[in-house]
Computed example of a mutant assay.
Amino acid sequence: MPSTPIRKVLITAFGDVDNVNVVSSTIDDPPTNHVQVRIVYSGFSGTDINMRLGKYPRQKAAPLTPGYCLVGTVEKNSPGSRNFAPGDMVACLTVYDAEAELANVPEKYLIPVPKGLDLEKACALIVDWTTAYAMVMHTAKVHAGQKVFVHGMSGAVGYALGVLCQLQGAEVYGTASPRNHEVIRSLGWTPYNYSNKDWIAAMHGKGGADVVFDPLGFESWDESYSILSSNHGLLIGYGGNLATLNDQPARGVLFPTIKLLSRNLMCPVVHKNTKFFYITRDDKTFGPDLQALFGLLAGGNIDVRIKAVFDMDDVQEAHRSWSKPLGIGSMLMKVSRKA
Rank of each mutant, 00 (worst) to 15 (best):
I6N: 12
L10S: 04
G15A: 06
V20N: 02
V23I: 15
S24N: 06
S25K: 06
D29S: 04
P31A: 09
H34W: 02
V35P: 07
Q36E: 04
V37L: 03
T47E: 02
D48R: 04
R52H: 05
Q59Y: 08
L64R: 09
Y68A: 10
C69Y: 11
K76C: 00
S81F: 04
P86C: 09
G87C: 09
A91H: 12
T94I: 03
Y96C: 05
Y96A: 07
E101D: 09
A103N: 11
A103Y: 12
I111F: 12
I111P: 13
P112E: 15
L119R: 13
K121I: 02
C123W: 01
V127D: 14
T130A: 05
K141I: 00
A144I: 02
G152H: 12
M153Y: 09
S154P: 02
A156M: 08
G162N: 05
L164I: 08
C165H: 08
S177A: 15
R179K: 05
H181N: 07
R185V: 14
R185C: 10
R185P: 04
Y192E: 11
Y192F: 15
N193R: 05
A201T: 11
A201N: 10
G205H: 06
G207D: 13
G208R: 09
V212Q: 11
E223F: 07
S229V: 06
S229Y: 13
N231L: 09
L234M: 11
L235N: 14
N241C: 06
N241P: 02
Q248G: 07
Q248V: 14
V253Y: 05
L254H: 03
F255C: 03
T257S: 11
I258G: 03
K259V: 01
L261W: 01
L265Q: 02
M266V: 00
V270N: 13
N273S: 08
T274H: 00
T274D: 02
F276G: 00
T280K: 11
R281N: 03
D282S: 12
D283K: 09
F286V: 03
Q291S: 10
L293G: 06
G295D: 03
G295R: 04
L296N: 02
G299E: 10
G300D: 08
N301L: 11
V309N: 08
D311H: 11
D313A: 12
W322T: 15
W322D: 13
S323G: 06
P325S: 07
L326V: 06
M331R: 13
L332S: 12
S336F: 14
K338V: 14
